[in-house]
């Protein structure tokens, strides 16, 4: 596949660019938050970065729970039900 056309993510620089874009947007979102006038239903919505922290923590907990608790309990061979 040496003569195959180079695709966008074959170049590691482009992956770097996507990551920088992600990190940049995170900083931007946090920087803009103080200028947003909030209309909260719940008190915790007023905490700075509540949604950011919630999203991050929720996903980390989700993955850890799925990987270390659920998977050992439910993982079986693909032919588990065949016999």
């Amino acid at each position: 596949m040496a003569d195959e056309k180079k695709h966008i993510f074959d170049n590691p620089k482009n992956i770097q660019r996507v990551l920088y874009g992600l990190f940049g947007s995170l900083i931007l979102l946090l920087a803009l938050e103080p200028f947003v006038e909030k209309h909260p239903y719940f008190p915790w919505e007023n905490w700075p970065g509540f949604y950011a922290i919630f999203g991050f923590v929720a996903c980390v907990l989700l993955v850890l729970a799925a990987k270390y608790i659920l998977r050992p309990l439910v993982k079986r061979d693909e032919d588990y039900y065949d016999d």
């Binding site: 992600l22 990190f23 947007s25 995170l26 979102l29 946090l30 938050e33 970065g49 949604y51 950011a52 922290i53 919630f54 999203g55 991050f56 929720a58 996903c59 980390v60 993955v63």
Partner: peptide
Amino acid sequence: QLLMFSALA
């Protein structure tokens, strides 16, 4: 914020 920080995770 919720979505992008999930993406970060």
